[in-house]
Design a protein around this nucleic acid. Structure first.
Lengths: 202, 202
DNA sequence: TGACAAGATGAGTCTCCACTCATCATCCTG
DNA sequence: CAGGATGATGAGTGGAGACTCATCTTGTCA
């Protein structure tokens, strides 16, 4: 009962934007990355039902290692979802910068749905919020990003002014789930998107 | 090894539209109904993850009885999905008869999504087809029903002529899944539907 | 380089759930 | 109303998967 049983290691207080995680051993950091990558891949292929063992196998570690880094399967899922959200937000900003405002929103929409068809994980991401503070926070950021895209598009006359951001996000989530669950032909997917875009247009 | 081990009992050859199931004992028929009702309720509340034991409890039977009637959890799910599909088709026909063609499609659409918000089962129903011949067949019927609704609406000038039935069904499925998974406010739900209807309009 | 703490390992535990079967109850027919 | 057949029962089986922990390995720092 000397109690040096376990050191958390899961998410050290976010000192800074991943500030090189000072006292953490090099192999530990490496493993964490591998596990994250493996989980991303496995969840993408098999959905959230995939087993931890499977992830460990792909990562080339033992199960215990996975659980050392992420105390719960749920925690692992959340970590990935957070990453994905950040990537989505990045996409949104990129489109806002590159495309003209009238099409940036549509381009972002299409891109996201396309990706969802491959990454089954994105499902729960846009749908469920009641998971974690950090996730909820990331969702808010996404909302903001979509809001900007929408504002610009409306200012440019590309989208009807009465449309609101939560409606866009709702539609986005719905389409992501749908393309994921059963695989529409990409042709059907695009025809369906076209209808939605028509509904958003002035 | 005298082998009177088991009599199937699950879905006797569809002699006629449920022709009173001749040789079937009365309590058996009663139990089948109870189980079906219980499963409908439980799956609606807890999603397809609900355990068979739970369903048996609600039905007031033993697990064994459930498995006597439906050899597999999947089979039970399919039976319910089939019922639901039939009900949907009935709805579609009712709306086609009552409403004017331009709005019948939209009314049916709204009704279905509203119901889905309550019945979690409808999700997999409209999404996944690769389950069973009978289901696939029922899905085809639904497709036909929507097709009629759509044809009439287009003839009446209520829907853009380029819209196709599979697109409508895809949108319908997507919205059902979405409202089901996390509960939008019914207000958001209707605003979102409005956008889609706008997209379908000429 | 040696020593020790941080980390990795993986067999084992625990829980949950779909499904089975020997036995008992009920229906129905003659 | 008797007796056989059909159906109901529910403890038991098997398997899957999340999570643990005693033990071994390795990175790191003096």
């Amino acid at each position: 009962m000397s109690t040096p049983q376990k050191s958390p290691l899961n998410e050290p207080p976010p000192g800074e934007p991943v500030a090189k995680n000072k006292g953490v051993r090099a192999d530990a950091r490496r493993n964490r990355e591998r596990i994250l990558a493996a989980a991303d891949q496995v969840f993408a292929e098999s959905g959230p039902g995939a087993s931890t063992e499977q992830i460990a196998a792909v990562a080339g570690t033992a199960v215990g290692t996975v659980f050392r880094h992420f105390p719960t399967k749920r925690a692992l899922l959340q970590a990935i979802m957070k990453d994905l959200l950040c990537q989505l937000i990045g996409d949104a900003e990129a489109f806002a910068a590159d495309e003209d405002p009238a099409t940036a929103l549509f381009a972002f929409f299409t891109r996201t749905v396309d990706q969802a068809a491959r990454k089954k994980t994105v499902i729960d991401l846009l749908a469920r919020d009641g998971t974690d503070v950090q996730i909820t926070e990331a969702v808010r950021s996404l909302h903001d990003a979509v809001q900007s895209l929408l504002d610009a598009a409306q200012a440019a006359g590309g989208v009807r002014p009465t449309v609101q951001a939560d409606e866009v996000i709702a539609l986005l989530g719905a389409m992501c789930q749908a393309t994921t669950r059963d695989s529409w032909s990409s042709e059907l997917q695009h025809r369906t998107l076209a209808i939605i875009f028509e509904g958003l247009a002035p």
